[in-house]
């Protein structure tokens, strides 16, 4: 039964992370960028749980739970900010937000 490689979980995490990075760069809708950030956080959590199983330690699971809690907080605040932007400007297109451009 002892046949799972550590690397197959880490590589799955790497694939998911890169998909998320692509989404953050390539998407224009702010809600879709937040979804891509969720993909990145899930990639990190897979790595944490895989290393926890690898070391036979419970710390991986505990920190995965912390990451999930922080992701919930991040989405709550992030969507509130997106909602505020929509209310002020009538659009959530990230290309329209260029006030900080010098």
């Amino acid at each position: 039964m002892d046949d799972l490689l550590l690397n197959q979980f880490l590589l799955l995490g790497a694939v998911l992370f890169c998909i998320g990075v692509y989404g953050v760069i390539a998407r224009r809708n702010a809600v879709l960028v937040l979804m891509s950030i969720e993909l990145i956080l899930n990639a990190v959590t897979i790595n944490l749980v895989a290393f926890g199983a690898f070391h036979g330690s419970v710390a991986g699971s505990v920190f995965a739970l912390f990451v999930i809690a922080i992701a919930a907080a991040e989405v709550g605040v992030g969507l509130a900010i997106v909602l505020l932007i929509y209310r002020n400007r009538g659009s959530v297109d990230l290309d329209d937000m260029a006030e900080m451009k010098g």
């Binding site: 490689l5 550590l6 880490l10 590589l11 199983a53």
Partner: peptide, 13 residues
């Protein structure tokens, strides 16, 4: 980096 570091390390499930 992953292949170089962990190669064929097994996860003791």
């Amino acid at each position: 980096a992953l292949i170089d570091e962990f190669g064929w390390t097994r996860t003791p499930l």
